Simulated scan of single mutants.
Amino acid sequence: MRSHWSNCIANFDNEVDDFVADYFADPQRRVLLVAAAGFDPRSRRIAALLSGALGDRLSAVYIREERPRPSEALVRRGDENEAALQALTPNCRIVKVDVFADDGAPVGGTRVIAALVDYDVPEDVTDVVLDFSALSTGIGFPLAKILLEDCEAATGRAFHLMVVSNPETDDRISSVPSSRPSPVRGFAPLAGGDRKVAQIWIPQLAHGKMGTLAQIGVAVGECYKICPLLPFPASNPRRADDLLSEYQSALVDEWLVDPRDVVYASERNPLDCFRTLSLLKTRFDRTMQDSYEPRLVLSPVGSKVLAAGALLAAIEHEMAVHYLETEGYTFEDIAPERAAAPDQTVHLILSGPLYASYPAPHPTA
Rank of each mutant, 00 (worst) to 15 (best):
P41T: 05
R42V: 11
S43P: 06
S43C: 15
R44A: 13
R44K: 14
R45V: 15
A48E: 15
S51T: 03
A53E: 10
A53C: 08
L54F: 04
D56F: 01
R57Y: 03
L58E: 10
S59C: 12
A60V: 04
I63K: 11
E66K: 14
P68V: 00
P70Q: 13
P70C: 08
E72I: 10
E72T: 13
A73D: 14
L74R: 02
G78N: 02
G78Q: 12
D79N: 14
A83Y: 00
A84T: 13
L85R: 12
A87L: 12
L88V: 04
T89P: 04
T89A: 14
T89G: 01
I94K: 01
V95R: 12
V95D: 06
D98H: 11
A101Q: 05
D102E: 15
D103W: 02
D103I: 00
D103C: 01
A105K: 09
P106V: 01
P106W: 02
T110H: 11
T110D: 12
T110V: 13
T110Q: 15
R111H: 12
I113H: 03
A115I: 04
L116H: 04
L116Y: 03
V117G: 00
D118S: 13
Y119R: 04
V121W: 02
V121Q: 07
P122F: 08
D124T: 11
T126G: 15
V128P: 13
V128W: 03
V129T: 08
F132H: 11
F132W: 15
F132R: 02
A134G: 02
L135W: 05
G138P: 00
G138D: 13
G138M: 04
I139D: 07
G140D: 08
A144S: 12
L147G: 08
L147Q: 08
L148W: 06
